[in-house]
Design a protein around this nucleic acid. Structure first.
Length: 278
DNA sequence: AGGGGTACCTGCGGGC
DNA sequence: TGCCCGCAGGTACCCC
């Protein structure tokens, strides 16, 4: 699922839901998806929920944190009054066969970490460990993701521009959906060598990256496939209704009616309009 | 250093 | 129906 807009949506909602709660119990159903000692969570108070790149950071009162990466198919579903919700059909069955960790709070509410493919993880971490992550500026931050910075990193690479957008050490938060969408909105072919972009194209690309990420946050993320991203109440986001090219191979371009093509770049599905992205 | 390929997992849909 | 293949929103690791 989750790229910056999806993770940010989850962060906002978790921050609202969890702040001030105390952890009463933790059930680790799949040990490979929990790194560190889950018992260290018990009794801890949640002071806030932050995000760094595609990671969610749950801050704890003792100064440590629970870091979470959802990778491709991770979900965080939060439920208070679970029995009522199940009876009314407001949420799907919980826990389900993909539930890997359950965190119970002092008010009887629960956080379910579901992950079909088991790539995601929860990890006990301290501040020092978080700072060692090699991550570029946040892709939606107009100040730190500056035009000057963007121009510099693009000029230093001959790789396809799409691969630079996906490189978290250079820019943090963009994934396959929004890399494809931003390149369409900027009218740039994904395979263009990064250092071949003109200053005007670089400025446009930066603008549409920030724009599309903010739009997707407003739409509470993209929920294209069944087993992937959900908001913390289990509902889908709606940005899948606004996609221009991602997942639309063989369909007509919404701007010019030419058929959207799919190729592979860096082993990943890459979608573009041959006419709008010459 | 940089680029390509593979691995981690599970499920689904399409073609034969 | 069954089997095999390719595909999936991410990243780490290996090798040249």
């Amino acid at each position: 699922m989750p790229e910056l807009p999806e993770v940010e949506t989850i962060r906002l909602q978790l921050n609202q839901a969890l702040k001030g709660l105390k952890v009463r119990e933790v059930q680790v159903l799949s040990p490979k998806n929990f790194i560190g000692n889950a018992k260290d969570l018990i009794g801890q108070k949640i002071t806030g929920v932050e995000r760094r790149a595609k990671m969610i950071i749950i801050r704890l009162a003792d100064g440590n944190c629970l870091a979470i990466h959802l990778k491709l198919t991770g979900q965080l579903i939060y439920a208070a009054r679970l029995r009522q919700k199940l009876r009314r059909g407001e949420v799907g069955q919980l826990p389900n066969k993909f539930t890997r960790v359950i965190i119970e709070f002092n008010d009887n509410s629960r956080l379910f970490f579901n992950d079909l493919r088991k790539f995601g993880w929860m990890r006990m971490a301290c501040e020092k460990e978080l700072q060692t992550e090699k991550l570029g500026p946040e892709a939606n931050n107009e100040k730190t993701f500056s035009l000057e910075y963007f121009r510099r990193i693009l000029s230093r690479s001959r790789k396809p521009v799409k691969l630079v957008l996906l490189d978290q050490e250079k820019i943090a938060g963009i994934g396959n959906i929004y890399a494809n969408e931003a390149l369409f909105l900027a009218g740039i072919l994904p395979s263009r060598p990064a250092n071949s972009l003109k200053l005007k194209e670089i400025a446009k690309l930066r603008e549409v990256i920030i724009g599309v990420l903010n739009e997707a946050i407003k739409h509470r993320g993209t929920s294209d496939r069944d087993e992937a991203y959900r908001q913390i109440n289990g509902q889908k986001g709606s940005h899948q209704n606004y996609l221009w090219v991602y997942g639309r191979a063989g369909q007509k371009c919404r701007k010019c009616q030419v058929v959207i093509k799919r190729i592979k770049i860096g082993g990943r599905g890459t979608f573009f309009c041959p006419k709008c992205q010459p």
